[in-house]
Design a protein around this nucleic acid. Structure first.
Length: 846
DNA sequence: GCAAGGTC
């Protein structure tokens, strides 16, 4: 049997399709899909991995013992050659420890003085995808030839090499080959499999050096930052080769903004003509630096009532159609449509798995010749909104596509592969599909021609200018309206014509600092600097958000982010600069070319890290104070009304839920409850009571501004009678149900007015205007209420245990499942089916 | 409890 190992399932499936004469048989080995077929009487099987199946880690159980001459000894008793260089004393302790207390403070398992040794700790590869490894070994045992057919790049070579090391454990006699292909097309695949080569061990070693260096630097610096000011488990402050330079970019931009000195300038605008044909023009001196100068102009035109058109210049310009989407340009375009890069990639992945779009992780921006442009346009004409445009494109004869600058042959640029129905996709899915489909059609379209008109009007010898853009030939803009400004139509004017002058206004303005990075812009900047890859950049940015180094969009660093960046910039400048990645790339190229060994490169990196620690370790106190101050500044809400110390956003150590507490605790016991959702402190104080205010953003709703004091009149809500108590009614009593808010917990609920005897109570959403109805729930008899939120009014039965709720959930699920089936495009080669997500009842409740 | 890189 011949075993073909690919990087991912979809490649295994497609390669089987292309090599097999008939249809390959889909099978499973321990839950891993495999594809079996025959070629000239030979049995073949393909299996897809899931990217890397092994993962480097420090040997967890390593102990340094005197009895073994300070050599490391694993739990199995195996002696690990000590990588500890001569200048470090031999460590008589484990690299990992159990949590311990120092001066009564819990310090965590990592210890500072272990870090220099960790920089030199040996690394082993441990299994990451155990199920896949089991399936792989099972197949390898029965194989008499192994073909590694992972992606044709450095990581692909490493993934293949790791897979091979697993297979060698069970079969080291079968000959091994490598198939190199750069596109999964019939020609490429057949050529690759008829010209098999050897696995490039040097290239795999280059990839492994990347893994080792990332682990060593990441683990050592992350541990340093986390324990230098230990803030409890779960509060990790991370650092890494890619994330830290990315953070540095954001911080540098913030510094520029802080250093920016705004300058005053004045703008003079005037209105001309008669309604409705009136228009606005700006003084030709767009920005007046001095107020006197602007005032002089205002004086000149003060008495004027007419202006004369002194010139009309028309200029046509061509706007080229956009080039095909790769991952980066898709994320940038989607970001301007309000989809974050991370969200875009999640949605793109699901659209891809459902067969609507092509593989979403690509660098390529040139459609390969094998891509059937015409057929794809024909498919898209099944979508009603694209139909007229598609028919027009097809009627024009041969299709010509635009080409981007990056041409690789691994995958085609991102394009639609099937027609989608806007009613059957979720709103964000359709948004992204629509963007991709329209972009595809745009790349096959002609340029747009825009006619720009510049009109100069003379008022008492002062020139005013207005411009208008008119689309002369829509070209691609007919189908692709994204990121373009609207037409500005000017009334028809002639040179020498006199127009009414309705007066001018002078406005004082200030120059703006450079803008913060949007997520899309940051990704482009990372790409320019070689930071991360197309598949990881969005995840890196998301990581910066989760460790709370950055916040908001456009991206703004937190005080903690700035402090981390400063501390590392001062004592470990290597990790804050993109140069480390650039140097690593050079070194990896040398390893791949056989000019350097992985050991040399990694050992040198270990030495550099050790030097960095020589700087970091003596400055622990300084870094600790800087981080502590930054964390306090980020948590600061306002002054405590009782003791004057800082009120801070805090997390309960038991429940992890957030509250506001006084920094003077335990001497001062002032606390305030917080509602659910993301909380941010505001500088502006409550206009009613003067206490600090917070911005609260609950899941999928608009942010609200609240006073932190539950007793503030702005937080009071009158009790509302919502109906009759059904339990008391059964007993023949006439009792009312009342909705009210608990001022201590901010929770709003309904209970019986006779609550001392009757237990009837229902929870309510925490915010939104509440109104009672006359209706009662048909399932449980509870009174129906209406809650008005940002998303509109919503009628609900408040009873959490209402039998109607279960039915509703069932119906919803059934409907969703139906939708899923109906939404499946009728593509012939539908990719693997995605499992439907389970609806989370907790999130839906909010 | 760490990184970044694949992929789901």
């Amino acid at each position: 049997m011949k075993l073909v190992v690919t990087e991912k399932n979809i490649a295994a499936q497609k390669i089987a399709d292309l090599l097999s004469v008939g249809k390959p048989k889909a099978d499973k080995v321990y839950n891993t899909p495999v594809y079996r077929f025959q070629v000239d009487g030979d049995e073949w099987v393909t299996i897809g991995l899931r990217g890397h199946i092994l993962e480097p880690d420090f040997m967890p159980s390593i102990v340094y013992k005197k009895s073994s001459g300070w050599q490391g000894v694993t739990a199995e008793g195996e002696v690990v050659p000590a990588h500890i260089p001569d200048f470090l004393p031999k460590p008589p302790f484990k690299t990992k420890r159990k949590p311990f207390k120092e001066d009564g403070v819990e310090m965590g398992a990592w210890k500072m003085d272990a870090l220099p040794y960790l920089a030199y700790a040996p690394i082993e590869k441990k299994p990451k995808e155990k199920d896949i490894i089991r399936s792989l070994k099972n197949l390898a045992k029965k194989s008499d030839e192994i073909i590694i057919a992972t992606d044709f790049d450095r990581e692909g070579e490493l993934i293949g090499s790791d897979a091979l090391s697993c297979m060698k454990e069970v079969n080291d006699t079968a000959p091994v080959f490598r198939a190199r292909y750069s596109a999964i097309t019939k020609d490429e695949i057949q050529h690759a499999f008829s010209h098999l080569v050897e696995l490039d061990n040097d290239l795999a070693q280059a990839g492994e050096s990347r893994q080792d260096i990332d682990l060593i630097w990441g683990a050592v610096l992350t541990r340093y930052l986390t324990i230098v000011k230990f803030a409890g488990y779960g509060n990790v402050r991370s650092s890494g080769r890619v994330q830290t330079p990315t953070l540095a970019l954001i911080v540098a931009r913030e510094r520029e903004r802080m250093a920016f000195v705004p300058e005053d300038y004045w703008v003079i605008k005037a209105r001309f003509g008669k309604e409705p044909e009136d228009f606005e023009a700006t003084h030709a001196m767009a920005r007046f630096k001095a107020e006197a100068q602007a005032n002089a102009v205002m004086g000149h035109v003060e008495d004027a009532s007419k202006g004369v058109i002194s010139s009309i210049e028309k200029r046509k310009r061509t706007v080229a159609a956009p080039v095909p989407f790769n991952t980066t340009s898709l994320m940038a375009a989607a970001a301007s449509e309000g989809l974050s890069p991370a969200r875009t990639m999640r949605i793109a992945e699901s659209l891809y798995m459902d067969g609507y779009i092509s593989y979403p992780r690509v660098d390529n921006t040139v459609y390969p010749e094998s891509l059937d442009l015409e057929g794809t346009v024909r498919k898209l004409s099944d979508v009603a909104v694209y139909r007229p445009y598609c028919q027009e494109l097809l009627s024009k004869g041969a299709l010509v596509a635009t080409r981007g600058k990056k041409e690789t042959t691994d995958h085609p640029p991102i394009h639609p592969t099937a027609a989608a129905d806007p009613d059957k996709l979720g709103a964000p899915e359709w948004k992204l599909y629509n963007l991709i489909a329209r972009r595809f059609l745009a790349t096959l379209s002609e340029s747009a021609v825009v006619e720009g008109t510049k009109v100069t009007i003379d008022v008492a010898s002062e020139p005013f200018v207005t411009r208008g853009d008119v689309l002369v030939k829509p070209g691609f803009r007919a189908i692709y309206p994204y990121g373009l400004k609207k037409d500005e139509q000017l009334p028809s004017l002639e040179e020498g014509q006199s127009v009414d002058f309705q007066g001018a206004t002078c406005t004082k303005k200030q120059t703006e600092p450079p803008a913060r990075y949007s997520q899309g812009k940051l990704i482009q900047e990372m790409e320019k600097l070689g930071l991360g890859t197309k598949a990881t950049r969005h995840a890196i940015i998301e990581r910066l958000y989760t460790v709370k180094y950055v916040q908001n969009d456009p991206i703004e660093p937190s005080q903690l982010g700035i402090a981390v960046c400063d501390a590392l910039g001062k004592f470990a400048p290597q990790i804050t600069s993109p140069d480390m990645t650039a140097t690593l790339e050079e070194d990896m190229n040398k390893i791949a070319a056989g000019e350097k060994s992985r050991k040399d490169v990694v050992d040198l990196s270990r030495d550099i890290l050790h030097d960095v620690l020589d700087e970091l370790l003596p400055h622990q106190e300084e870094v600790k104070d800087a981080l502590a101050d930054a964390v306090a500044a980020d948590a600061y809400v306002g002054p405590c009304p009782k003791c004057g110390k800082d009120l801070q956003l805090r997390a309960s150590s038991k429940t992890r839920s957030m509250f506001i507490g006084c920094a003077g605790w335990p001497d001062c016991d002032v606390t305030y409850p917080l509602p659910k959702g993301k909380v941010e402190a505001l500088e502006e104080k409550c206009p009613t009571c003067g206490m600090p205010q917070i911005k609260v953003t609950a899941f999928r709703s608009k942010p609200r501004t609240l006073c932190i004091d539950p007793n503030c009149p702005t937080n009071q809500e009158p009790d509302v009678v919502v109906g009759k108590c059904p339990t008391c009614a059964e007993k023949g009593l006439d009792k009312k149900l009342i909705a009210s808010k608990n001022p201590r917990t901010l929770k709003r609920f309904i209970r019986c007015e006779n609550y001392e005897e009757c237990e009837t109570s229902y929870p309510l959403p925490q915010y939104g205007e509440l109104t009672a109805t006359e209706e009662t729930c048909e399932h449980c008899g509870a009174p129906m209420v209406i809650v008005k939120t940002a998303r509109g009014p919503w009628k609900l039965c408040p009873n959490f245990n209402c039998p109607g709720k279960e039915k509703e959930a069932e119906e919803k699920e059934a409907k969703a499942a139906q939708k899923k089936v109906a939404a499946k495009p009728t593509a012939k080669k539908a990719p693997a089916k995605k499992t439907a997500k389970k609806p989370s009842p907790k999130k839906e409740k909010e």
